[in-house]
Deep mutational scan, measured.
Amino acid sequence: KSIMKVYCQICRKGDNEELLLLCDGCDKGCHTYCHRPKITTIPDGDWFCPACIAKA
């Protein structure tokens, strides 16, 4: 079994998992407080990182 360690693409830390959003496009993580602008609430439904939005 392989366990994927998810970490924030900005701060490179994997702590505060409850505030770590996973992109529905690329599965990369980003803390709500590292994202600019900050994300104050966990979004309902799908969330896409800035890189995936730029590709769309």
Score class of each variant (00 low, 15 high):
D24T: 14
L20E: 03
C49E: 02
D46M: 04
C11P: 01
K5R: 08
K1L: 01
F48C: 14
Y33M: 11
K55Q: 05
A56L: 02
R36S: 15
H35N: 08
R12E: 13
T41V: 10
I39E: 14
G45M: 02
H31T: 02
D15F: 07
Y33C: 03
C26V: 01
I39H: 05
R12K: 14
H31N: 02
K1V: 01
I3R: 07
P43M: 03
T41R: 11
C52P: 00
E17V: 14
K13E: 11
Q9P: 13
K13A: 11
Y33S: 09
C26D: 01
T40Y: 07
D44I: 12
C52N: 02
L20V: 09
C34H: 04
I39L: 14
F48G: 10
C26Q: 01
I42R: 10
T40V: 10
D46N: 12
P37N: 06
L22M: 10
R36C: 13
P43L: 06
G14D: 10
R12Q: 11
F48L: 10
I3T: 10
D44E: 04
L22P: 07
C11W: 00
D15R: 03
G29F: 11
P50A: 09
D24A: 14
D27V: 04
L22Q: 09
C34M: 01
R36N: 09
T32P: 03
K13R: 05
E18A: 12
R36Q: 08
L19T: 08
Y33V: 05
C52D: 02
D15P: 03
N16Q: 13
D27Y: 09
T40Q: 12
L22N: 10
K28C: 06
I10W: 11
G14P: 11
D24E: 15
N16Y: 11
C11T: 00
K28L: 11
W47Q: 05
E18P: 05
P43C: 08
K28F: 15
L20N: 03
D27R: 07
P43F: 02
I39N: 13
I3E: 08
I42K: 13
L20M: 12
A51Y: 02
C49N: 01
C26W: 00
I42M: 14
I53D: 12
D15A: 04
T40G: 08
T32G: 07
C11H: 00
I10V: 10
K1E: 11
L22V: 11
D24H: 10
I10M: 11
K5L: 05
A56P: 02
I42A: 14
W47K: 07
I3D: 14
L19Q: 15
K1T: 06
Y7F: 09
I3Q: 15
G25L: 03
C8N: 00
T40L: 10
C26F: 00
L21Q: 06
Y33K: 07
L22W: 08
I53L: 14
K13L: 10
L20S: 03
P43T: 13
L20T: 08
I39D: 05
C49A: 00
Q9C: 08
G29I: 15
D15L: 02
G25P: 02
S2F: 06
C52I: 00
K28W: 13
Y7A: 08
D46F: 03
E18H: 14
F48M: 12
C8K: 00
D27G: 13
M4P: 05
R12C: 06
A54K: 11
R36T: 15
I42H: 04
I42W: 12
A51Q: 05
H35Y: 05
G29V: 13
K28T: 11
C52G: 02
H31K: 02
R12P: 00
A56G: 02
T41E: 13
I42F: 12
W47M: 03
C52S: 01
G29R: 09
K1H: 02
C30Y: 13
K28Y: 11
C26T: 01
D46P: 14
K38A: 12
P50R: 15
I3N: 15
T41H: 11
H35G: 08
D44Y: 04
I39K: 07
P37R: 04
P37D: 05
P43G: 12
A56T: 06
G25N: 06
E18W: 03
T40W: 09
T32N: 07
H31R: 01
D15Q: 04
V6H: 11
G14A: 13
C52Q: 02
K13C: 03
W47I: 08
T32V: 10
C11E: 01
N16F: 03
I53G: 11
N16L: 07
F48K: 15
C52Y: 01
Q9S: 15
C30W: 14
K38S: 10
W47S: 06
I42Y: 08
C23F: 02
D15V: 10
C49L: 00
D24V: 14
V6D: 12
C52H: 02
L20H: 03
I53M: 13
G45D: 09
C8R: 00
Y33W: 05
T32D: 04
K13W: 04
G25Y: 04
N16H: 13
K13M: 13
Y33G: 11
C52W: 00
C30D: 04
K38T: 12
W47E: 03
P50E: 15
C34Y: 01
D24Y: 01
I3W: 04
E17T: 09
A56V: 14
L21A: 07
D46Y: 02
I3S: 10
M4K: 07
K55G: 14
T40M: 12
C34L: 01
K28S: 08
Y7P: 05
T41A: 07
I42C: 15
S2H: 15
D15Y: 02
K28P: 01
C30N: 04
D46Q: 15
K13F: 04
C34N: 01
C30H: 12
I53H: 09
A56W: 03
Y7M: 10
T41I: 10
L21P: 02
A51H: 04
W47F: 02
S2W: 02
Q9F: 08
L19K: 12
D27T: 09
W47V: 03
F48E: 11
K55L: 00
Y7D: 15
A54M: 03
I42E: 15
E18D: 10
E17G: 13
T41N: 10
C26E: 01
T40I: 07
T32C: 03
Q9E: 12
D27N: 08
D46H: 07
R36D: 11
P50K: 02
I3G: 07
G45Q: 15
N16M: 06
P43D: 09
W47A: 05
A54S: 09
K13T: 06
T40N: 04
L19R: 09
T40A: 06
E17A: 15
L21V: 06
E18C: 04
I53T: 04
C34T: 01
G45N: 12
P37H: 05
L22C: 13
P37Y: 01
L20W: 02
D44M: 09
P50L: 01
G25S: 06
C26G: 01
P43K: 09
T32R: 09
T41C: 08
E17M: 10
A51I: 06
D15N: 12
P37L: 05
K5F: 02
Q9T: 10
G14S: 14
G29S: 12
A51T: 13
I42S: 10
P43S: 14
K38G: 05
K5H: 04
L19N: 14
L20A: 04
Q9M: 08
L20P: 02
T40E: 11
I10L: 13
N16G: 12
H35F: 07
I53Y: 11
M4H: 12
V6G: 11
E18S: 13
C11A: 00
D15C: 07
E17S: 12
L19P: 09
C8S: 00
Y33D: 07
C49H: 03
C49I: 00
H31V: 01
A54C: 08
D24R: 10
